[in-house]
Amino acid sequence: MPRPAVDPVRAAATQRLRRAAGRWLKAAREARGLTQAELAAILGLRYYTFVSQVESGVGRVPIESQGDWAAALGLDAADFAGTLLRYYEPELHRLLFGETPDPVESKASA
């Protein structure tokens, strides 16, 4: 069965949110005083450039490791997962938690 075509508007929105998530992750890491390699070592990653990858907005932090990321960054796990959910799955976040401002838009207007 042919695959549905990728909606370019949706893809662009997704990428915009992923990049915003990456910037947020990077800020959290730097606030913790960790390099990408140091964070990767704490997380037990096999290659540290994965941290750079997600901070660049390419891909996302896997759900199963978000608890470890939160701990490494000194953040509350629920808050960490909730923030990432807002970036990664904004519609699901809206359904679960109600309307919340677009994290990118709200940051831009701040």
């Binding site: 695959r3 997704t14 997380l43 096999r46 994965f50 891909g59 896997p62």
Partner: peptide, 20 residues
Amino acid sequence: VAGGVDAAPEGHGPASVTAD
């Protein structure tokens, strides 16, 4: 350039790459 990419679950089992 990649957009909307799901990160490979590095260090957490195989990625969800299917034949499809």
